[in-house]
Each structure stands twice: as structure tokens, then as C-alpha cells.
């Protein structure tokens, strides 16, 4: 910017103090806008949610702007303990966490497959990365349709295997099928697996790109040295390459844990938690409870959010601890 320099004639009196403490004050000027924003929209609300979880509140205010919330102590948490939907959601969260971890080895596998130099490889790599770029809403819709027994891909594959196409005497095509095609998203046992499979698709793409970058930076002299020592295949991967991929693995695990616990979009799009709450996870159950058609339950919703936050905090603390170790090692 073309700000003219201020003439330095009238500064001495205030400049001495500013000058003396310049390096102590300056960072706060640079930090202030971000800190204010972050405090209002992120830090403040965390504590407010904690506080609200001890109230019962439908989100309304009286005419003079007083909140109608009433203090109920730990009631919301006691209710949670006896709420079967809460436990279903929690179990599903664990299922998501465990199965989502498949994205890490799967991503590594695809990265190893693609880590070659043939013509057009760059384009292949970016096309493989595609699923991550598009919105989870779209991924959810695609898979919802994919699983649709009447119109979708699963339906048509089923037809190809189990149905016999017959043409009756007026020429209409009818299908005679053995049983009916599976309706994955309407089955309480399988729906969650169906959604997780859909969620894995973009997540594998993400892990793949992390590992491609990691593989790109593996020290080639060590690989050559390993080759001279007769290491190849699995042995090379395990003893030489894998240790060098540790930073990539760490990031892949972090983003996969966060992704698993944040899963919301797919569930909201594909099943809305159903059938009978069987696909709910805490993030979706919280939303459903806090803003439902039957009136808002901000207090109870906040209590669910606090539980989810506590689970996440375990991971966040670990990540931060790891980062802290790196910082100490650095400059």
C-alpha cells in the first residue's frame, strides 16, 4: 500500500515508550483481530455450551429479553446415561473410528500403486484424488442412489445375478427374481456399514495424497542402499520406507480420527440417523435433539455435544502433545 511515511518530527514523547516496548507490544496488534474473532465464535461458545448443558432450555426468551432457561444441574447427563439412542450413537461412533482407520492402509496401498512415472501420471493422481474435493453431500447422494434397490447400482447388479429377464407375449420385459435386492440403507444392521463405506471413499483419497507426498520425499540413497543389501518388496517397505513415512502417517491418522468423529453430512443425507436411530452418531444425534421438529432442546443437546467434545479432547491433547515435542526439537 502507498501509505506515506509519517514525518518523524512530533513523535519523541510517545515514541520512547513505544520504542522501548516495541517488540513486546507489536505482536498484540497483529494478533488482536484474529483473537477477537476466535474468542467470540470459537472459545466463548465452548464454555457457553458447557454451561448450557446444566440447563433445560427451548432457546426462547421472554418479552424483556430474559432467557427462559432453568437450571437442572447434572440432570441432562443423568438422562443421557439412560438414553438408549445415546448409547447407540456412541457405539456407532466407535464403529466409525475403527472402520475409518482402514482409510490409512488403503490410502498407502493406492499411493504405492500410483507412485510411478509413466506418461499422464499427474492427471491420474489428481483424478484419483477427486472424491475428496467434492462435497460430502454429493458423495452421500451418490451412494444413497448407488444403494437404492429399485433405481440404483446395487439394484441393477443384483438383477444381473439373481433375476431372469422374460419377455411376455405382448413384448413387455419383466423380471423374475430370486428374493428382492438388498435395501442396505433401510436395514438397521447394515445401514451404518453402508454409510461408512461411502465415507471411506473420500477419506482414502485424502490419505493417498498424503502418502504420495510422503513417498515423494523418501530418501532415494537409503532405498538404493537397501537394494544393495538385497531388501525388496515388503521388507523394503517395512524397514526402509515406512519409518520415513511417519510424518505422513501421523497426519493421516489425525485427519482420519477427526473425520470419523465429525461425520455428519453423510448420515444427514443418507439416513438422517434412521432406521430407528440405528445409524445415529453423536454429532448427528446432537443436532437432531437440539433442533428438532418437536421444539428445541438446547440443554440436552449441549450435554451430548460436551460428551463428543470430551472424546475429541483426548485425541486433541495427544496431537498437541506430539506437536509440542516437535516444537521443542525445533528452533
Amino acid at each position: 500500500m502507498a501509505h506515506a511515511t509519517m514525518p518523524d518530527t512530533n513523535v519523541p514523547t510517545e515514541a520512547t515508550w513505544m520504542q522501548r516496548n516495541k517488540l513486546a507490544i507489536a505482536p498484540w496488534f497483529f494478533l488482536a483481530p484474529a483473537l477477537v474473532f476466535f474468542a467470540i465464535y470459537v472459545v466463548g461458545p465452548i464454555f457457553e455450551s458447557l454451561y448450557l448443558s446444566f440447563f433445560e432450555w427451548n432457546g426462547l426468551y421472554t418479552a424483556d429479553g430474559e432467557s427462559t432457561a432453568t437450571w437442572v444441574g447434572v440432570d441432562n447427563y443423568v438422562k443421557l446415561w439412560d438414553d438408549p439412542n445415546f448409547w447407540t450413537s456412541l457405539v456407532n461412533n466407535v464403529l466409525w473410528l475403527v472402520l475409518f482407520m482402514l482409510a490409512v492402509p488403503a490410502g498407502l496401498f493406492i499411493a504405492l500403486f500410483l507412485n510411478q512415472e509413466v506418461p499422464g501420471m499427474r492427471l491420474y493422481k489428481s483424478l484419483f484424488f477427486f472424491p475428496f474435493v467434492i462435497s460430502q453431500v454429493v458423495v452421500g447422494l451418490i451412494f444413497g442412489w448407488f444403494y437404492n434397490p429399485d433405481f440404483g447400482v446395487v439394484g441393477s447388479i443384483y438383477k444381473a445375478f439373481y433375476c431372469e429377464e422374460t419377455v411376455n407375449f405382448v413384448g413387455n420385459v419383466t423380471f423374475k427374481c430370486v428374493g428382492s435386492p438388498p435395501d442396505i440403507l433401510s436395514s438397521p444392521e447394515f445401514a451404518t456399514y453402508g454409510i461408512i463405506a461411502a465415507g471411506l471413499w473420500p477419506q482414502i483419497a485424502y490419505c493417498m495424497i498424503l502418502y504420495l507426498t510422503g513417498l515423494n520425499n523418501v530418501a532415494s540413497d537409503q532405498i538404493e542402499a537397501g537394494r544393495l543389501d538385497g531388501a525388496k518388496g515388503w521388507k523394503m517397505l517395512w524397514y526402509v520406507v515406512w519409518p520415513q513415512l511417519r510424518p505422513a502417517t501421523f497426519i493421516a491418522v489425525v485427519v482420519t480420527v477427526i473425520g470419523a468423529l465429525r461425520s455428519f453430512d453423510m448420515i444427514a443425507i443418507m439416513t438422517q440417523g434412521g432406521p430407528f436411530g440405528s445409524t445415529n452418531v453423536l454429532s448427528h444425534y446432537m443436532f437432531e435433539t437440539a433442533i428438532s421438529e418437536y421444539g428445541e432442546r438446547y440443554g440436552y443437546g449441549s450435554a451430548i455435544a460436551v460428551v463428543l467434545f470430551a472424546i475429541m479432547l483426548i485425541f486433541i491433547s495427544y496431537f498437541l502433545w506430539r506437536m509440542y515435542q516437535d516444537e521443542k526439537g525445533g528452533r
Partner: peptide
């Protein structure tokens, strides 16, 4: 406080949206 503040920003980035939902909506 440079490092603690930095970690505050990092941690904020990982939290579940649901813990912010009710207050942000209300606000």
C-alpha cells in the same frame, strides 16, 4: 504466550462443530 496461543488456534481447528452449535445459533 506465543506457543499456548498457537496451540489454542490449532486445537480450535479440531473441535467438533456441535460444541459451538447452540451458542453460535443463539448469538
Amino acid at each position: 504466550v506465543a506457543l499456548p496461543l498457537f496451540f489454542l488456534f490449532v486445537a480450535g481447528n479440531f473441535i467438533p462443530f456441535q460444541i459451538l452449535m447452540v451458542p453460535v445459533r443463539d448469538m
